[in-house]
């Protein structure tokens, strides 16, 4: 039986915009298991960013529960959420979110500073993950000295350094050309093959086809949740239907 990593039940998120209450999520139920590769899709305003923020412990729900590795994280205070983000979640964003004045090595080692690891361990582990993403020759380069694809690789390495339970990738190819996008999707594919759980937020059908399960959101509710029968691999990319 597969181990459940994420379980959300009746998850709702309401925002107050002026006098109006916007219901971004309306009672979402979802379970994600270890080593799953899930694509979260939906049009603008469907609630996928809100769900991603809650899954990433960057926001808390208005109601409902969110269990991450069996622990209810839906009502935790900010400091505990920060700790969960540090230990359990690796983020990969469209905009890379790297520190511009720090080298690739320092950027990758950053989560370990907050985790309280010493300099030696930080360096060792950062070098290892940078090698894993194919950037062992770019460790002392700053983000402005790297290409878009290399920056995203640094972001992926940073996401991997703490061996997180889940990797949340929000439009990871949004800022990249098609060739580099394929490279990054190949990297995510390898990471998944190594046993990691990946949640990919995207609006691009061909990118979503790399995932093994596709969840679609519409108006704050799950409208579709199916196993992907035609998984696209880097060797044989499938055309979006």
């Amino acid at each position: 039986m597969q181990e459940e990593i994420i379980r959300i039940q009746g998850l709702s998120k309401h925002y107050k915009v002026g006098m109006e209450v916007v219901k971004a999520l309306r009672g979402v139920d979802l379970s994600i298991y270890r080593n799953e590769y899930v694509a979260l899709m939906g049009p603008s305003g469907s609630g996928k960013s809100t769900l991603m923020n809650i899954l990433g412990c960057l926001d808390t729900p208005t109601s409902g529960s969110y269990y991450l590795n069996g622990k209810d994280v839906s009502k935790l205070p900010d400091n505990e959420l920060a700790e969960i983000r540090n230990r359990e979640i690796g983020f990969v964003f469209q905009t890379f979110n790297l520190l511009p004045r720090s080298t690739a090595l320092d950027n990758v080692a950053l989560p370990l500073i907050y985790a309280g690891q010493n300099k030696f361990i930080r360096r060792e582990r950062a070098l290892k993950v940078l090698d894993q993403v194919g950037l062992s020759d770019r460790t002392h380069h700053r983000p402005n000295e790297l290409s878009g694809g290399q920056r995203q690789r640094v972001a992926v390495a940073r996401a991997l350094i703490n061996n997180p339970s889940i990797i949340l990738a929000d439009e990871p190819t949004g800022n990249l050309d098609s060739k580099t996008s394929i490279e990054i999707m190949g990297l995510l594919q390898d990471i998944h093959a190594a046993g990691n759980t990946i949640i990919l937020v995207t609006h691009e059908e061909d990118i979503a086809l790399h995932a093994h399960r596709i969840v679609r959101l519409l108006d704050g509710e799950v409208s579709y949740d199916q196993v992907n029968e035609s998984i696209a691999t880097i060797e044989q990319p499938t055309q979006a239907s």
Binding site: G56, N79, R85, R158
Partner: peptide, 11 residues
Amino acid sequence: SMQLVGATQSF
């Protein structure tokens, strides 16, 4: 970026 990688608000 610091927040995403798990730094606390006070940090």
